[in-house]
């Protein structure tokens, strides 16, 4: 499944880049994220409860950030598994200056398996869009609150 989109955040590229690579901020912004622990250089272990309709449960995931080029770009690799199945994906994030605002351009490929795939497939795209919407809304708030 392809995930892509562009979001505008009212902050500088450096600021947005820092927010998006800060595990504490990520934990706050990712819907359902209960835990985000550093396990290595730019590597984190995350626990999040997520689901699609009736298919839900707790996922444990390793998140790694690669190819970090502040403030332009990084690559995010996620591998998670839980009772409803597994999620595996990677995506590129690019940060583009847009007259003082920052455009976050993201695109990635996600594979899902297990119950998530067999029952939830049709709804995953919708659920993913909803989650990313919430995520960026949270991030925007975060940018505002910590900006001052």
């Amino acid at each position: 499944m392809k995930i892509e989109g562009t979001e505008k955040i009212n902050a500088t590229r450096e600021r947005v880049f820092d927010l998006l690579t800060d595990p504490a901020i990520l934990q706050k912004c990712i819907p359902g994220c209960e835990q985000m622990e550093k396990i290595g250089d730019n590597q984190y272990s995350a626990k999040l409860s997520a689901g699609v309709g009736p298919v839900k449960g707790v996922f444990t995931a390793t998140v790694s950030m690669q190819d970090l080029r502040r403030p332009d770009h990084y690559k995010l690799v996620v591998e998670g598994k839980g009772q409803p199945g597994f999620v595996k994906g990677s995506g590129e994030l690019n940060f583009v200056d847009d007259g003082g605002l920052t455009q976050v351009q993201y695109s990635g490929d996600v594979n899902v398996g297990g119950l998530l795939a067999s029952v939830g497939q049709r709804m995953i795209q919708g659920a993913a869009n909803m989650m990313s919407g919430k995520f960026f809304a949270n991030l925007e708030n975060e940018a505002k609150s910590t900006d001052s």
Binding site: G114, A117, S118, V119, R122
Partner: peptide, 9 residues
């Protein structure tokens, strides 16, 4: 992955 895995699909 079997994505036509239920009678919904």
């Amino acid at each position: 992955q079997l994505i036509s895995g239920s009678l919904m699909d």
